[in-house]
Amino acid sequence: MYKINFNTSEFLSTHWQKEPLVIKGAFSNFVDPMSADELAGLACEEEISSRVVITKENNWEIIQGPINDYEQFGEDNWQLLVQAVNHWFPDSASLIEAFRFIPDWRFDDLMVSFATPGGGVGPHIDNYDVFLLQGEGTRRWKVGAKGNYTPRGGDTHTALIDDFEPIIDVVLEAGDMLYIPPGFPHCAQTLTTALSYSIGFRAPSQQELFSSVADHLLDTNTGLKRFTSTSEPVAASSVSIEHQKGMLSLLNELLKQPEQYQTVLGQLLSQNRFELDLSDPESPYQREDLTDALSEGAEIHRIGGLKVIKLEGDTEQRLFINGDIFACEQLTSEEIEHLANAFIIDNQQALTLCGSSAMSEMFVGLLNKGFYYLA
């Protein structure tokens, strides 16, 4: 079990999305949740996003996974990066749980890196919040102030930038952590062979929000109200200010309707950027199968990375899970809270919850979706 050694309320009020922070000893006696060999094994899999970054003089070469041969890279100046490790490696779940002082909907993924001396990524700027937790080994991190930086090589599609003047220059050891909000340039250099953990948090962009609204309106065949006006411009070629504002007010009207925006937000915020490791059953579960398994001591586990979201003030009693809507009219508010918050439902809790036929049916549906599994 991992426990954070700093005041999270103070952190959220003074640093979260405001300024970088070095937290020495963020985790006491930190033990890596995985080994370098286990990380390399994940990088062999086709469905898992991975890459090797090779440090060259004033440049970096990226080799996309799957990666099966590491001898070709030598003993220094490279690092392996594997995305969404929490989806594929259950033992990482307790590390993720330590960061749930930030809402689940913001959580993006756990990226793990293995780096040899000299390995690292060049100066770059991310558009998300990230906690950089050091495991085995040591890495030197530099962070710069927010500002207008030139994209490396003039490429506006890259996060890489030209160098910056550091406001933070620190060596992280096991259990140390660096928090970086969006927009602050940073880079790392590996001093001794190291495992590092990047816990990322992301919020939707305007593009993503508008795209989700449009998809929802098309899927539900709603938003059909058309613009009307009480006056017309004198020039036939002109679109008046009044007409421009009137058309945009149609969008504003839609976005004020909870029955529209709540569904959009619930579906969008419960989805993942990376593929999930669904636990599809060999044959569909029935209630009797669940009852038998629980009587033999089984627990109910949520698969890694699955987001179970509920909206405060929702116009309907429901949960959003991986972009799907699950109606919960037959469940109590306590049952909904338990389902939304628990990664693992132990045997005694599961037996109690499944005393309700509605809750039992809900679990059967989630098991058959591959979102949960019996352990």
Rank of each mutant, 00 (worst) to 15 (best):
S283G: 06
S283C: 08
S283Y: 11
P284H: 06
P284R: 04
P284N: 09
Y285G: 07
Y285C: 09
Y285M: 11
Q286A: 15
Q286P: 01
Q286D: 13
Q286N: 08
R287L: 15
R287T: 10
R287M: 15
R287Y: 08
R287G: 11
E288C: 04
E288N: 06
E288K: 10
E288Y: 00
E288A: 13
E288V: 05
D289Y: 05
D289Q: 07
D289G: 08
L290W: 00
T291S: 12
D292F: 07
D292H: 07
D292Y: 06
D292Q: 10
A293K: 00
A293Q: 03
A293W: 00
A293C: 04
A293F: 01
A293P: 00
A293T: 00
L294K: 01
L294Y: 04
S295H: 12
S295D: 15
S295N: 15
S295A: 15
S295P: 02
S295Y: 09
S295G: 12
E296K: 04
E296G: 03
E296N: 10
E296V: 01
E296D: 14
E296H: 08
E296F: 01
G297Q: 07
G297K: 03
G297E: 08
A298I: 03
A298T: 03
A298M: 06
A298Y: 03
A298R: 04
A298P: 03
E299H: 09
E299S: 15
I300D: 10
I300G: 12
I300E: 12
H301C: 15
H301Q: 15
H301P: 04
H301A: 14
H301K: 13
H301Y: 11
R302S: 13
R302C: 15
R302P: 06
R302F: 03
I303T: 01
I303V: 02
I303N: 01
I303P: 01
G304M: 08
G304E: 08
G304T: 00
G304F: 09
G305P: 03
G305W: 01
G305K: 00
G305V: 02
L306M: 05
L306Y: 07
K307G: 10
K307C: 06
K307D: 07
K307T: 03
V308N: 12
V308S: 11
I309V: 13
I309T: 05
K310G: 11
K310V: 14
K310E: 14
K310M: 12
K310C: 11
L311W: 05
L311S: 00
L311A: 03
E312R: 13
E312M: 12
E312C: 09
G313I: 06
G313P: 07
G313R: 09
G313W: 06
